[in-house]
Design a protein around this nucleic acid. Structure first.
Lengths: 202, 202
DNA sequence: GAAGTTATTTGAACGCTGTTCACTTTTGGC
DNA sequence: GCCAAAAGTGAACAGCGTTCAAATAACTTC
């Protein structure tokens, strides 16, 4: 029956998300998901093909939640008072850092998975989600003097996104506390501030 | 005999480095190393305790090579003509990016390993090496208006290093070519340039 | 309803992993 | 030569992703 089929698929995906969020990529296994979903490993493979696809779908949902958080923040900015470029980029960076903070283990699983499959091919629909995040930043940066040069705009957006990503990623190294420390927030603020100041005085 | 003991240890370490450099962390296995070293898995465990220790030692040697590359670049700067802050930071960033480029797979293995053991024990050896790199950057940045505030100096050094790290790390995603693309170099240059410009016009 | 056909589900089996440990071999001192 | 201590061994254990012949369920046709 198609309903059971869909239910089993949804269940397995939800269980995967829970495992990745609580125990990380290491805690995931096809047998564990199948057992908790009340199906056999064979059925799980019939539904998803392989474990990579299952993990990817869980990661997609995580990325979508991040994109929603970013879009929500932007719409709040648009609805409220008019903020300058720096304030808007800071807002986006804080949303990202906060999201990672609240989804630390799941986000770590996503990064570990992306690194593990770095050699193999990455589906386009997977990469498209990440391009969406670049586009949001590029849109904000288009109001600066960089806006005239489309190519430089993309370069700047990627540089800024990867930089914030690097700061947040480096923050979690040997830290058992799940909260980001004050230094990390300071680094983000400093980076965005210096970067925007540099861009606007081009 | 102690000589054979040491030779087997050195062999196993060299084989591990070669595997991590060519096939990555995925290609590594205790049995493979033991087989190629001409010893049994049991002996390998007698020598290193567990596979984590073996991989860690290989990673330490990689980090040491990076440190040497950085120190060499700095001494060349000191010996040669007087470069400004931007040029010196660019030099350091380029050394790092070039090193990652020439050791792509091995560096990816190191990052994957560090991520995998993030929850477990704290790699203080890595943290110590990272602090050294921060100090180098902070030293260069001390010539800017930031130099007056020691705390801000450290924050800026960390932010800049993590940013370059983030750009280089994000560059390798779905790229089968081992060379960094032009966009990555552009991003590094843009980031360093904008950051320094922002700092100097404080 | 019965028979035949197709789609789905199953779990044992394969080869791999890290790790352990009873057993064998080698070594070093007497 | 002998014996204790150290070193080396590899089968065994539990787990992994993945496959696939067999069993079950569902749907069609008579």
């Amino acid at each position: 029956m198609a309903l059971d089929h869909d239910k089993a698929t949804a269940d397995a995906l939800a269980i995967t998300e829970r495992i990745l969020a609580s125990d990380g990529l290491e805690g995931f296994s096809a047998r564990k998901v199948a057992r908790e979903a009340g199906i056999s490993v064979g059925t799980l493979y019939n539904l998803f093909g392989d474990t990579d696809t299952l993990i990817r779908q869980a990661n997609i949902r995580l990325l979508d939640r991040l994109a929603i958080a970013g879009a929500t923040a932007l719409s709040e900015i648009a609805g409220g008072e008019m903020l300058d470029v720096r304030a808007r980029l800071l807002k986006l960076a804080h949303v990202y850092a906060g999201f990672v903070e609240e989804n630390r283990t799941a986000w770590g699983s996503l990064l570990a998975f992306n690194r593990a499959i770095a050699g193999r091919d990455t589906p386009d629909w997977y990469r498209a989600r990440q391009e969406t995040l670049f586009a949001i930043i590029a849109d904000v940066l288009s109001e600066t003097p960089l806006g005239r040069d489309r190519e430089k705009l993309v370069t700047a957006a990627r540089a800024l996104w990867s930089s914030v990503h690097g700061i947040v990623t480096n923050a979690y190294r040997g830290v058992d506390d799940n909260r980001l420390d004050q230094s990390t927030w300071d680094q983000i603020d400093l980076l965005v501030t210096m970067f925007v100041r540099g861009v606007e005085r081009a």
